[in-house]
Design a protein around this nucleic acid. Structure first.
Length: 344
DNA sequence: AAACCGGGGTT
DNA sequence: AACCCAGGTTT
């Protein structure tokens, strides 16, 4: 029996029961695929439930305010996904009369949709035989076929896509694509894969050559930079504070935060006090450090060493926000954790 | 081709 | 603390 047949047989018995597997509605499949980019099923699941409940159709999503979409996305990370999702919903409604594009080529034109996502939607919703290549597929194919080309090299990307495209069952691409991904996540796992009971273990090159833990090959090494973040948490007359929107490109674009003083080195109480006085035109103020120990918020490529400075004042000229309204604004997890811990 | 973009998990 | 996981866009 060939690779695809064995895989599909495995899937028919072992497939997971996931909410987005009950539908072929391209809007729902698109939502699920964007949410699941760089995200485990367990983490994405509640967000899929929230989004389908709040925005049951593409028209509802298109009509929403970006801020509300980001608020619902809060905590999931990679926020450009939410911004692109919203922009594409508006594009589908305004330019395509609300009709979801139905070919790989047209689907890929949506913002935030690349090769993987376009292949997934085209195959699952429209039966187009385009093979998906996600992290699971790289792992399964590199091991079973013993391919050592780095999966994040230009050559590797082409090589694995070609192989997957050769293997895909053109009669049932949706089943094949979901089968290989499910197999990768449940059997051919990154750590402690289930080789002893694997359906491919008699032919799998990695298993038989004892190379399972060495595959797939990935060249990497992202260097991590360190920054100091000082958030200024104003308390004005007990019930007001000050927040600002991050409008510039970079992390957390269009999310909100307390006014931020960023630096390459750690700043002292004196330096913070002075900068707050100058920036906010305050002659005198009461300031205290909330977290005795610095909070290190770890992103994939930077570590943010964070302090929250609580400043009590009554004569702030800037536009304040009611503390009880804080949860109307999308904020990074770092800020949400503070709001929860501080207990205003 | 390399850097950027979040957050959660395991060892 | 050091490692791992996982697509798309921008530079």
């Amino acid at each position: 029996m060939n690779f695809s047949k064995k895989l599909i047989n495995w899937y028919s018995v072992n497939k997971r029961d996931l909410p987005w597997r009950k539908t072929q509605n391209p809007y729902f499949i698109w939502l699920s695929e964007i949410i699941l980019q760089q995200t485990q099923v367990k983490q994405g699941w509640p967000y899929y439930s929230k989004f389908t409940a709040n925005y049951p159709t593409v028209f509802d999503l298109a009509a929403a305010k970006e801020e509300d979409v980001l608020n619902l996305w809060q905590g999931l990370g990679y926020y450009s996904r939410a911004r692109n999702l919203h922009a594409s919903a508006k594009y589908i409604v305004n330019e395509l009369d609300g009709i979801f594009p139905n070919t790989y080529k047209e689907i890929k034109k949506l913002k935030g949709v690349g090769d993987y996502t376009a292949s997934a939607i085209a195959s699952i919703c429209f039966n187009e035989p385009t093979a998906v290549v996600d992290g699971n597929v790289y792992r399964v194919l590199s091991r079973v076929f013993g391919i050592e080309t780095p999966i994040n090299s230009t050559l590797g990307i082409k090589e694995f896509k070609t192989l997957a495209q050769k293997l895909v069952d053109v009669k049932q691409p949706a089943t094949f694509n979901q089968a290989i991904m499910d197999f990768g996540s449940q059997v051919c796992k990154p750590k402690q894969p289930l080789c002893e009971t694997c359906i491919f273990n008699s032919t799998c090159l990695a298993f038989n050559l004892n190379k399972v833990s060495a595959l797939p090959v990935k060249l990497n090494k992202t260097k991590i930079t360190e920054k100091y973040f000082n958030f200024i948490v104003f308390l004005v007359d007990g019930d007001l504070t000050l927040i600002e929107k991050r409008t510039k490109k970079g992390i957390w674009q269009n999310l909100y935060q307390f006014p931020l003083i960023e630096s390459k080195k750690e700043l002292t109480l004196m330096e913070i006090t002075k900068r707050v006085k100058v920036q906010f035109e305050l002659s005198q103020l009461e300031i205290r450090l909330f977290n005795k120990d610095v909070i290190t918020h770890k992103l994939s490529h930077q570590h943010l060493k964070t302090k929250f400075w609580v400043v009590s004042t009554s004569n702030l000229t800037a536009n304040t926000t009611k503390i009880k309204d804080l949860n109307n604004y999308p904020v990074p997890v770092l800020i949400q954790n503070f709001i929860n811990d501080f207990n205003f």
